[in-house]
Design a protein around this nucleic acid. Structure first.
Length: 502
RNA sequence: GGCGCUAUGGUGCAACGGUUAGCACGUAGCCCUUUCAAGGCUAAAAUACGGGUUCGAUUCCCGUUAGCGCUACCA
C-alpha cells in the first residue's frame, strides 16, 4: 500500500459536488481531503459540477458551493467543469459500449424500476419476511425487438457470475459479486426530439474521471457500493481504474446521517457565525483522519504535510460542535496577531465599526489610534472571544464611543450606593495622572478604593461597567490603557451622570 | 428483505499481538483571580457481546447484536 501514499508526481484528484443543495459539511470534508492530498503530493485539484439531473439540479446553488469552498480555502487548478455541458462525451461513450456489446438498449418503461412492484418498500412499510426483491437483470439485455412507441434508455450489461474487485486505499481490497449488481442505466431515454437524454451518475463519473485523468478518487464511503459498477465501466471502456479512497461519513449527535435537525450543516452558516476558516479546516480534517499521534492543533501547512490516505479512518464520525468551538478559540488565541487582524477587520466592517486609520500603514486618526493600537486592542480582547462577532458585540466599547451599558452588568456591579461617589473620585484621580500606563492606573484606583473604605474589587468591577458597559471584559487596567486617558475619564463622568437613571 | 461497511469513555482520535489502554473536547472539583475567559492540577468515564487462534488479544478469524451505507431513467 506504500505505493499509494508515497509521493508521486502526476496525482490528479477532483471534488465533484452536485448542485442540489448547499455545501454540506460532509462534502466540505471530502473536498478538504482531496485538497490536502493534492497539495501534499504537488498534484492537481479539479472541480467538477455534477449536474446531469435537470430536475433536481438548481444552477443558482453552484455559487454558494463555490463560495463555501473559497471560504474554506480549498482552491482548484482546473474547472469548474459542468457535466451538463459535456453530454456529447457521455453519449459517445454509451454508444461505444453499445457497439462493443457491454451495454444494451432498454425499452422498459421507467416506472417499472422507479416504483411499483419491483421497487423497495417505503421506509414506513415493514420489509419483513420475503419482501419484494429488486430486479437486477433486465429482460432487454438479450435484445428486445425495438418498440417504436418508446424511446430506449441505455443500460450496462453486467456480467453474469464472477466478481469485481478494486483496491481502496482506506478499506483495502474489496470484492463484490456481479450477481448483486443490477443492469444500471447509463443514459436516460430521450425526450422530444433527442435520441437519448442526459447521462446517469455512473457513466458521467467514469467518463469524466478517465477524461480528466484522475488518479485518486477520494469520496464518501456511501459510494463504496457504486464502485464495482464503475470498475466494470472502466474495463468496458478499456481504461485502467484509479485508486479509490473512500472516507467515512459524518454523522449527527444521534449517530444518524447529519441533517438540518442536528444544527447547521451548511458550511456557509459557519462562516456567517464567525468561525475562522483555518479552525474549521483543522476541525474537519480530524474528522475521519489522524496524523497518528496526539497533536490536534495543526495549522494548514502542517495538515498538508502530514495528510495521508493511510491515516484515514474507516469509522463514521460524529460532528461535535463544542469541539469545533474549542478549535476556534484556540486559533483566536494562538494565531500570530497579524494573521488574525484581517478577520477582525472584516467583522468590524460588517458591523460598521471599522475605521480606516486602523489599517496597516495608515496615518493615525484624530484620537491617535492607529494600526498598532488596533493590534494591541485585538490582542487584549482575543482570549475572551469565541466567535468573530464578539468583537462587535460585547467588545463594542473598544472600537466605538457609541455603546450602551448592559443593564445586567449595572445591576450586578453598581449595587453599592457609594458607587457614583467613588467613580467621580476615580475620574478626578485618573485625570490628574501625568503618566498613563497600567501601573499608574492601578495605583490610582486602589488609592481611591482605600480612601473610600471599599475593597478594590468593588471599584474595579464598577469601573469596568462604567467604561466598557459590560460585566465581561479584559483586565481593567489594560483596558484603561488601550482606551486612552481622556476617554476613560470622560466615560467615568458620563457614568456618574447616568447613575440612578433608567 | 438483499448486499456491503463499521464497532476503544458521552464525542473526536492514539495504541497497528505484550502499555497501569494514551491525548483532546465535554463534564465535576480545586488552584489562580479584578468580571468573564484563558491557564494549571485532579476526578469520573471505554476496548459492544459470545466463541475461537495464540504463551499472550483493543489488535487476527468466525458468529451475534447494533449503527450506517447502497439497493432510482438521484448524485
Amino acid at each position: 500500500m506504500s505505493d499509494i501514499t508515497s509521493k508521486s508526481r502526476g496525482v490528479r484528484v477532483r471534488f465533484a459536488p452536485s448542485p442540489t443543495g448547499y455545501l454540506h459539511v460532509g462534502g466540505a470534508r471530502t473536498a478538504l481531503f482531496n485538497w490536502l492530498f493534492a497539495r501534499g503530493q504537488s498534484g492537481t485539484m479539479i472541480l467538477r459540477v455534477e449536474d446531469t439531473d435537470a430536475e433536481r439540479n438548481k444552477p443558482e446553488l453552484v455559487q454558494g458551493i463555490l463560495d463555501g469552498l473559497q471560504w474554506l480555502g480549498v482552491d482548484w487548478d482546473e474547472g469548474p467543469f459542468y457535466q451538463s455541458q459535456r453530454t456529447e462525451l457521455y453519449r459517445a461513450a454509451a454508444k461505444k459500449l453499445l457497439a462493443n456489446g457491454t451495454a444494451f438498449l432498454c425499452y422498459c418503461p421507467a416506472e417499472k424500476y422507479a416504483g411499483g412492484d419491483h421497487a423497495e418498500p417505503g421506509q414506513d412499510e415493514e420489509p419483513k419476511g420475503g419482501g419484494p426483491r429488486r430486479v437486477t437483470r433486465c429482460t432487454c439485455r438479450d435484445g428486445k425487438p425495438s418498440n417504436p412507441d418508446v424511446k430506449p434508455a441505455i443500460r450496462f450489461k453486467v456480467p453474469l457470475g464472477g466478481t469485481t474487485k478494486f483496491l481502496d486505499a482506506v478499506f483495502g481490497e474489496r470484492e463484490f459479486s456481479n450477481d448483486e449488481i443490477e443492469d444500471f442505466v447509463l443514459l436516460r431515454s430521450g425526450k422530444g426530439e433527442e435520441e437519448f437524454g442526459q447521462s446517469m451518475y455512473q457513466l458521467g463519473v467514469v467518463v469524466d474521471d478517465i477524461d480528466m485523468r484522475i488518479t485518486h478518487v477520494i469520496r464518501g464511503a456511501d459510494h463504496i457500493s457504486n464502485t464495482p459498477k464503475q470498475v466494470l465501466l472502466y474495463r468496458a471502456l478499456g481504461a485502467q481504474p484509479p485508486v479509490f479512497a473512500h472516507v467515512p461519513l459524518i454523522l449527527g449527535a444521534d449517530k444518524s446521517r447529519l441533517s438540518k435537525r442536528h444544527g447547521a450543516t451548511d458550511v456557509n452558516m459557519y462562516r456567517a457565525e464567525g468561525f475562522l476558516p483555518e479552525a474549521f479546516r483543522n476541525f474537519l480534517a480530524l474528522l475521519g483522519w489522524s496524523p497518528g499521534g496526539d497533536e490536534e492543533f495543526i495549522r494548514t501547512k502542517d495538515l498538508i504535510e502530514k495528510f495521508s490516505l493511510a491515516g484515514v479512518s474507516r469509522t463514521n464520525a460524529v460532528f461535535d460542535r463544542p469541539k469545533l468551538e474549542w478549535f476556534n478559540t484556540q486559533y483566536l488565541q494562538k494565531l500570530p496577531i497579524e494573521e488574525l487582524l484581517p478577520e477582525v477587520e472584516n467583522e468590524l466592517r460588517r458591523s460598521g465599526l471599522w475605521k480606516p486609520e486602523w489599517a496597516a500603514g495608515a496615518a493615525p486618526g484624530p484620537d491617535g489610534r492607529d494600526h498598532a493600537w488596533f493590534a494591541k486592542t485585538v490582542d487584549l480582547l482575543r482570549p475572551r472571544v469565541r466567535l468573530l462577532p464578539d468583537f462587535s458585540s460585547w467588545s463594542r466599547a473598544f472600537f466605538s464611543d457609541d455603546f450602551l451599558r448592559d443593564p445586567a452588568a449595572i445591576a450586578k456591579f453598581w449595587k453599592d450606593p457609594k458607587t457614583p461617589e467613588l467613580l467621580a473620585k476615580l475620574a478626578d484621580a485618573l485625570e490628574a495622572l501625568s503618566e498613563w500606563n497600567h501601573d499608574a492606573c492601578d495605583h490610582a484606583s486602589r488609592a481611591v478604593a482605600e480612601a473610600g473604605g471599599v475593597k478594590a474589587g468593588l471599584l474595579i468591577n464598577a469601573t469596568r461597567v462604567a467604561i466598557v458597559g459590560q460585566a465581561v471584559a479584559p483586565p481593567l487596567f489594560d483596558t484603561m490603557v488601550v482606551l486612552g486617558h481622556q476617554r476613560v475619564v470622560r466615560r467615568l463622568r458620563d457614568a456618574v451622570s447616568t447613575f440612578g437613571k433608567s
